[in-house]
Design a protein around this nucleic acid. Structure first.
Lengths: 232, 232
DNA sequence: CCAAAAGTGTTTTCTCTACACCCATGT
DNA sequence: ACATGGGTGTAGAGAAAACACTTTTGG
């Protein structure tokens, strides 16, 4: 039962698992920061911060991401709240994790550098402080699920992308090889992609057609009971 | 970036969405309480309470459930954290919701009564305080997903149950009619149910065989890469 | 013997998977 | 002309869905 007076108060933080995808080396990456203060100074951690008096958790997460990357209006999703008493050796801190999907090429390099942020491939992460590795694991598990049932993969790609690149993204996240013909049939049959009159010519002589995701179509299909489903 | 000193502190609460299932009227229910204090005294709400200094969020949720129902070792799962600044008009409170699946017949009636707790069918819920309706909605959505991919339905049934009862539970949660033959074939083919030498004779002359869920089998199958999947 | 609920198989449809060759182009 | 990556269709297997009658037994 809630009794407002005399109820204890707690430090509440938000930690951001910032995913990016590099179309060139075909790897899913995390934006990590070198912690600049005690405890655990110099160790790798997620981008985090305390929740202020007059901001919601969502706002805190957006603020932290903005300060680190200069990005607004990014796909972010709350993931889990970590509340063990001793999870942070500095003090009792309750922390809610959010994951963000960003277009890696859009971030403000200068800002990121100032804050000691670095991209690290998900397959070779350094040791992280506290329970941050667990946060990453949980977020990655959710991303793997989400990408099959919601068109969130496009948040990680440039506006225009080729079907090869899209497939490589799915392979990087699902960590398995996908059949090219089956993949293309499935994604194209949803009618969510718009074929552009332009080719990507850097990686092959023939060139690959660019596509882009059509959000309007997706939203109108969704209103009619359509469900995204890429069962890869 | 975290700066421990001078960071603001917040009231942190836990709210429990307590699901129960009545095999007789075949309805999914919620255990709600009449709030005994201001603000919103006399209104319906979820069971909640503030997180103490020396307990984790999980422990707080278990404590609240125990105090209300007398039950321990119940299936509980964290669902979402609600952090809008003005969600509680009494003060700024950040609240993490947990849902619990309990066997309705096991609760301590006396304790529940003292605390003003009442079962209400999910289909005809009263208006709830604050954002509690939203909490219920989100928890129910997750339950609908979970019940298809994890054997959590059994948490809501008595130890021994008939296949008819199990199907009715699925129909109540998924809110749709399920084909009897397909349902039985799927659930039995997983080899998780043990047929008992006893019949339920109250609802029919022929009687229906009792079954029980075999947790050991489930765990050993799970270790071998088996996934529960009742695609209803 | 009849009412009421439990229990039981088969066919059809659809979805998923596996698989190999031609195309376009820059050098 | 050839090397390189892009693009394309079909057949077979397995899963899901649709469907109706028989069994049991208390009264």
């Amino acid at each position: 039962m809630k009794i407002y007076a005399n109820a204890p108060k707690h430090l509440v933080a938000v930690d951001c698992i910032i995913f990016g995808y590099d179309i060139h080396d075909k790897e899913l990456k995390l934006l990590l920061i070198k912690r600049g203060f005690e405890p655990a100074k110099g160790k790798w951690s997620l981008a985090g911060g305390f929740v202020r008096e007059n901001e919601s958790l969502d706002q805190a997460a957006s603020r932290i991401l903005l300060n680190l990357t200069g990005l607004k209006n990014v796909y972010m999703k709350q993931n889990y709240t970590y509340g063990d008493v001793d999870r942070d050796p500095g003090a009792r801190v309750i922390s809610t994790s959010y994951y963000a999907l960003i277009k890696i090429q859009n971030i403000d390099q200068h800002l990121a550098e100032i804050n000691g942020a670095h991209w690290r491939p998900i397959s070779r992460l350094p040791e992280l402080i506290f329970d941050h590795s667990q946060m990453v694991e949980r977020a990655l598990a959710e991303l793997k699920n989400q990408i099959k049932i919601k068109p969130v993969g496009f948040e990680l790609l440039p506006e225009n992308f080729t079907l090869v690149q899209l497939q490589e993204l799915y392979e990087a996240i699902c960590q398995r090889k996908i059949d090219k013909r089956n993949f293309r049939r499935k994604i194209l049959s949803m009618n969510l992609l718009e074929k552009l009159n332009e080719k990507e010519k850097l990686t092959s002589r023939k060139g690959a057609w660019y596509y882009k995701f059509n959000l309007e179509k997706y939203q109108s299909f969704t209103r009619n009971g359509f469900y995204f489903n890429l069962n890869v």
